[in-house]
């Protein structure tokens, strides 16, 4: 693999992201992302190459909406997450898929399970995350995150009110 990216530092970034999300440090979570970042959760019946511009996703946030998502989730009026759920993001099988040296960017995949517990129910979100990770002023940042769920639908979850 290229000298610009190695798996250890990418894993550190993804594990840090998981911790921040589980600690509900969502503003700090946003800091891991570039200013042109995006965050996607496609619907579970779409083909892999589906795009949010012409297919219906569960979530298709640009940076503005990621910020608004965080702002909303930090409010008591985000009823679905107040009182807050407990979450545990597990990240595994991290692989650097390819490196784009021109843009100083790596494509990374990881197998993930996120558990959300609230009100006596624990629901697992099982899937794989695809990241585009770049280096900004020497610091690794996430430019894109896409969470592809290995589920038939959000059942019984009913929502993706947490950040996956």
């Amino acid at each position: 693999m290229s000298k610009e990216f190695n798996r250890n530092e990418i894993e550190d970034l993804l594990f840090l992201e998981a911790d921040l999300l589980d600690d509900w440090k969502l503003k700090e979570w946003l800091d891991l992302y570039t200013k042109d970042a995006s965050y996607y959760v496609p619907s579970t019946d779409l083909p892999k190459d589906a795009k949010a511009d012409d297919s219906l996703f569960y979530i298709a946030d640009d940076r503005l909406r990621m910020e608004e998502r965080v702002t909303r989730l930090m409010k008591k009026t985000a009823h679905s997450e107040y009182p807050r759920s407990k979450t545990r993001h597990l990240v595994s099988n991290v692989r650097i898929r390819s490196i784009d040296t021109d843009n100083d960017e790596a494509e990374v995949s990881a197998a993930v399970v996120t558990f959300r517990t609230k009100g006596g129910n624990t629901d697992p979100y099982i899937g794989s995350n695809y990241y585009r990770i770049c280096r900004e002023n020497g610091v690794l940042k996430i430019r894109e995150k896409l969470c592809r769920l290995d589920l038939d639908g959000l059942r019984p979850h009913g929502r993706v009110s947490i950040i996956l």
């Binding site: 569960y58 909303r72 009823h79 679905s80 009913g158 929502r159 993706v160 009110s161």
Partner: peptide
Amino acid sequence: LYNFLEFLGPGGFATPDDVEALE
């Protein structure tokens, strides 16, 4: 679709709170 997702569906800024209310 951008407008759809701001409000509607289980990842939107509104439907999850409806789900919470119904539950």
